[in-house]
């Protein structure tokens, strides 16, 4: 007979899990679709919000940090400098915080229906990715306005940078999501923690500002991503392949640890949530 399922006490991670997630890809699509739809249904300007929000932030940052404080921007206009950084940062921080809350916010579904739980964090990242794609439209507009043309290598490198961001957000998010189920105060600490992270990531300032201590910033994988995104799109510096490789390896490790921890505690979710 087809479709034989065996239920027994669960072990830790196995490759069958990845196959299972693939089998449930339609549910992944529906969760993403739901989150997206619901979010923009509740605002009057609807989907424009996804464009409006980063745009206004960019304007405010440019006024205060660029004009008034005169923060250097590696020789490119401050608005496009900060926007490039923000684009990746918003994707990362949004995905991280949504992922870590996703189990709690869907607990009524978790306790009533079975599906691979990994679907939920993946769908929050996917939702954020849609936001990222929409917000990118402004960057394209700004690049045309300021007359920046990315070179070919730069364009090729973008998917790698996105993938690193994805791994960092999902890896950290899975870990936090699992902890969040058990310790309910984590979600109150998290926004504060993410805000702190913003200041040790060169989003509103260039890494060069830290001078000889900039290697400390390099411990933060998002620095590699944002630095190189600027290098690729705006030509602020040559692409730093070493930094990319280090970030890639660190995030891959983070993703692995996050996934394994998530799978380890996954079996208790329905019992303790």
């Amino acid at each position: 007979m087809r479709n034989v399922t065996i239920i027994k006490p669960k072990k830790v991670f196995s490759f069958a899990d990845i196959k299972e997630v693939w089998n449930y890809k339609e549910l992944l699509y529906f969760f993403t679709w739901r989150d997206f739809k619901v979010r923009y249904k509740q605002t009057t300007i609807g989907i424009l919000w996804a464009v409006f929000q980063p745009f206004i932030t960019m304007v405010v940052f440019s006024l205060f940090f660029g004009k008034l404080l005169g923060i250097p921007s590696d020789g490119v206009p401050y608005p496009i400098f900060v926007y490039t950084g923000m684009l990746f940062w918003d994707f990362f921080s949004g995905a991280l915080s949504d992922t870590s809350n996703v189990l709690i916010s869907n607990q009524s579904i978790i306790t009533k229906v079975y599906f691979p739980r990994l679907i939920l964090p993946l769908s929050s990242v996917a939702t954020k990715f849609v936001d990222f794609a929409i917000a990118s439209a402004i960057l394209v507009g700004m690049m045309i306005y300021y007359g920046f043309a990315p070179h070919l290598v730069g364009l090729l490198i973008l998917p790698i940078l996105l993938f690193i961001t994805f791994m960092a957000a999902v890896g950290g998010g899975l870990f936090l999501a699992a902890i969040n189920v058990k310790y309910r105060d984590v979600r109150f600490i998290l926004p504060f923690f993410i805000q702190l992270l913003l200041f040790i990531t060169p989003v509103i300032y260039p890494a060069s500002i830290a001078g000889k201590y900039s290697w400390i910033l390099a411990l933060n994988p998002m620095m590699g991503v944002i630095q190189n995104a600027r290098a690729a799109l705006l030509g602020t510096a040559p692409i730093n392949w070493l930094l990319i490789s280090i970030s890639f390896a660190a995030c891959a490790a983070l993703l692995m640890i996050g996934t394994m921890y998530f799978k380890k505690v996954e079996r208790y979710f329905a019992d303790i949530i």
Partner: peptide, 27 residues
Amino acid sequence: LTGITPPTEGEIKINGRIASLLEVGTG
């Protein structure tokens, strides 16, 4: 049986597609 929570011991073999309705209007 639905797989929402795993058993502590033992084994279940299911031949076929399973769906559960533990609550009306889940999700």
